[in-house]
């Protein structure tokens, strides 16, 4: 009883902060999402319009297009980060000259704010000024212009995200790999298992919890990406990199369409929860059932 009370006392400050800065704003956004509200409309007051915003979103081409490019971005970026991150984590498990220097350099992007990453990549990719288009042209005769080519802009953003966030995946997977017991690996070696079999039947199942946690973090981050994209392309060319985060930003801030913007935010949150739940059910629940 005593320990319960102490626990609640210790938790109280966090819960109070969370309530005021997390729960209340969220409830307010849900409340606003059922209203038509643009402070610069002819009628600037908040008008309850039921589920009209939610009905509208289903037929909103701009939202659906934004959802499409976001899903494509999430799939390409997160999958690439997992594969590259795992390979790097495995590399860092071995000893090689200059390992600590390489690991430090490799981790540096993580400490950069997304808006800075966007600025740096903008400088590197601006046509005729940036180093990347310059050398692509000089060495390979490739013209790269993220202001006109939608695939180039999309690919640049995916690569930028991979560069920025792969170190996070590497670090979490190194932690997972380091904590694995040696016995199963030695046993597999004695039984004559090859590398692929060892990975598939021992390593992967054992690091799955860490892998899922990493996927959750990256998935949620990627779904709400704004800063880097805003800085690099502003959502262009056209709407080719207008990811959901950018779409919501443009709807809520410049357009001051608070009602509809809140609706999109709620839907995006709902989609994120559904995707994470599906991931959880498909990857972790079967393990729990087996153990049970």
């Amino acid at each position: 009883m005593q320990s319960n009370k102490l626990g609640w006392i210790l938790l109280a400050p966090t819960l109070v902060i969370l309530f005021f800065f997390g729960v209340l704003p969220f409830l307010y956004v849900v409340f606003v999402s059922f209203h038509q509200w643009n402070p610069f409309a002819a009628s600037p007051e908040m008008i309850f319009n039921g589920a009209e915003n939610f009905r509208r979103i289903v037929f909103d081409d701009a939202f659906l297009s934004s959802l499409g490019v976001t899903v494509a971005f999430v799939v390409f970026a997160v999958l690439s980060e997992l594969i590259i991150g795992y390979l790097l984590a495995q590399a860092f498990m071995k000893e090689f000259p200059g390992k600590s220097i390489f690991r430090t350099i490799h981790t540096l992007p993580l400490i950069m704010a997304p808006i800075i990453v966007g600025s740096v990549w903008k400088l590197m990719t601006t046509p005729s000024i940036g180093i990347i288009p310059h050398y692509l042209d000089e060495w390979f005769g490739i013209t790269m212009n993220i202001g006109t080519s939608a695939p180039a802009a999309f690919l640049t953003i995916v690569i930028m995200d991979i560069w920025h966030w792969t170190p996070l995946v590497t670090l979490t997977l190194i932690a997972a790999l380091v904590s694995l017991p040696r016995d199963p690996f030695e046993q597999a070696q004695i039984d004559g298992a090859n590398k692929a079999q060892t990975f598939w039947h021992i390593t992967l199942p054992m690091i799955t919890p860490a892998l899922v946690a990493t996927i959750f973090i990256r998935l949620m981050d990627a779904l709400r990406t704004v800063d880097e994209v805003w800085m690099l392309t502003g959502g262009g060319p056209g709407s080719s990199t207008r990811f959901l985060g950018v779409h919501i930003f443009k709807e809520v801030f410049p357009k001051t369409n608070y009602g509809y913007g809140s609706t999109i935010s709620v839907i995006v949150l709902y989609l994120t929860i559904v995707v994470c739940w599906l991931l959880y059910v498909s990857m972790l629940a079967p393990r729990k059932n087996r153990k049970g």
Binding site: F40, A41, G236, P237, S239, K250, E251, K255, T256
Partner: peptide
């Protein structure tokens, strides 16, 4: 309605 009309029509200009 400056920013509102601008933001509504700008994607088409792009």
């Amino acid at each position: 309605f400056h920013a509102q009309v601008r933001e509504a029509t700008a994607p088409i200009l792009y």
